[in-house]
Write a protein that binds this DNA or RNA. Structure first.
Length: 432
RNA sequence: UCCGCGAUAGCUCAAUGGUAGAGCAUUCGGCUGUUAACCGAAGGGUUGUAGGUUCGAGUCCUACUCGCGGAGCCA
């Protein structure tokens, strides 16, 4: 295979002749000199084509290149302070690879609707490339974190026979002669089986919600990572969650400076994301709301505006724990010291980004769990395997789920979740 | 499901009820250091759909369609 040189490699090739391949990001022309901005996914490079330095034909090719045309360019690499990225290519040859006529996304501003219609092309823009790179690095940080702590990646099924938590609306499908199947809304119940087999596991995959949520904080298909640990109580769970978030944020701050700069992210807010995070009980949170003039009744769940008020009291993520058990899922363990509340925790991100983590200690007592399933009107037959986990060597265990796109959105400072995933799926959009 | 906002050139937007315009993109011309380059010119429209008011509707009224934001639900 021929050696492939990319823009990110150029510091090794100063003074040498190289051939690069990519797409035309932009072009400026001043009579006998043309400035071609090449992008190749690793960076941006200004290429100079002087009329006197190349043949008539090569100059014509350079002249004919249009936005997003793909081409090959050869020339000498030099350091150049005036150019973006600090390098410049003095071209001697240009070859067209693929034409591009009337590229829809011009260098001026566009509306969100138009951009999302052209998502497949929008992804080529500088901003979207940076978001995708940060998303990738966050995913890697997540995996590194758990892998280094002795967790085993444990893949749950995506097609499930029932609603995991019995609350959300799910996508339904016909499953041969077995009746209805559903796309999973959480791998958690399966992760519990994994934790009792392997000790510490995490699931990482797509999740589906058929809720008709029309907000910037919702997608119908999103990625979630869910660790589940045997012999962890709620406090252990919260300790892990804050160490986890600190690791992700600090890793991105350290390794993705350039991309955060392209996104114009105010990193001073992210630098404060270090342990310990404030921990407030639901009762404390209700007090905060009342002190801020909110007419809030104990027992209700917090709305988006309530969450923002609570998180604005702090400069880092806040962990709200011990919610009324009535508003939480059936599998969450009740607090032995106050059975009205569940051993649950939500982590609210700063700057109004809302809930990024939801977790709990799980109910490990067979009889209490059976009772809870009846109370929630869930079909016990579907949960027999799950109840077996309490019949054969039940142990205290806990876990949580982190929404990947909400995390990407928060760290990148995005306005809308749809930019945090390559091809967003929303209630009124399933294309491109 | 409920509440609010919107739809005009390929894109982003203007246009007191009185000849539908600008910037970008495209095409042509000019410029040997440009940084969303600049300068000059050209092409480009059934103003979301249907109806109504009016001498006259992009503009006012009604219905519908589509989209956006928020609530609820949640990560």
């Amino acid at each position: 295979m021929e050696k492939k040189i990319t823009i990110s490699d150029l510091s090794d090739y100063v003074g040498q002749d190289v051939t690069l391949k990519g797409w035309l990001y932009n072009k400026r022309s001043s009579g006998k000199v043309k400035f071609l901005i090449l992008r190749d996914g690793t960076g941006y490079l200004q290429c100079i084509v002087f009329k006197g330095n190349v043949s008539e034909d090569v100059f014509k090719v350079a002249d004919s290149l249009t936005q997003e045309a793909s081409f090959e360019i050869t020339g000498k690499v030099k350091r150049e302070e005036r150019a973006v990225g600090g390098f410049e290519l003095d071209a001697t040859d240009v070859k067209l690879i693929g034409e591009s006529h009337d590229f829809p996304i011009t260098p001026k501003e566009h509306g969100v609707e138009f951009l999302i219609d052209n998502r497949h092309l929008w992804l080529r823009s500088k901003r979207q490339v940076s978001i995708m790179k940060i998303r990738h690095r966050i995913v890697k940080a997540i995996r590194d974190f758990f892998d280094e702590k002795g967790f085993t990646l444990f893949d749950p099924p995506i097609i499930t026979p029932n609603a995991c938590e019995g609350t959300s609306t799910l996508f339904e499908l016909d499953y041969f002669d077995l009746g209805k199947g559903y796309l999973t809304q959480s791998g958690q119940l399966y992760a519990e089986a994994g934790a009792l087999a392997l000790g510490k596991v995490y699931t990482f995959g797509p999740t589906f919600r058929a809720e008709k949520s029309k907000t910037r904080r919702h997608l119908t298909e999103f990625w979630m990572v869910e660790p589940e640990m045997a012999f962890y109580d709620l406090n252990d769970d919260m300790d892990l969650a804050e160490e986890f978030l600190e690791y992700i944020v600090q890793t991105i701050l350290k390794e993705k400076k350039e991309d955060l700069a392209i996104l114009e992210r105010d990193t001073s807010k992210l630098e404060k994301v270090v342990r310990p995070f404030p921990r407030v009980s639901y009762d404390d949170a209700v007090e905060i709301l009342k002190n801020n003039g909110v007419d809030f009744e104990w027992g209700n769940d917090f709305g988006a505006a309530d969450e923002t008020i609570i998180s604005n009291q702090f400069d880092r993520p806040v962990m709200v724990h011990r919610y009324p058990s009535e508003i939480k899922a059936f599998y969450m363990k009740r607090d032995p010291e106050n059975p009205k509340v569940a051993l649950a925790v939500d982590v609210l991100a700063p700057e109004g980004y809302g809930e990024i983590i939801g977790g709990s200690q799980r109910e490990d007592d067979l009889n209490l769990l059976l009772e809870r399933i009846k109370q929630h009107d869930l079909p016990q037959s579907f949960f027999e395997w799950y109840l077996d986990l309490r019949r054969y060597g039940s142990v205290p265990h806990s876990g949580f789920g982190l929404g990947l796109e909400r995390t990407v959105s928060w760290i990148c400072g995005l306005e809308h979740l749809r930019e945090a995933i390559p091809f967003p799926r929303m209630i009124y959009r399933n294309t491109p």
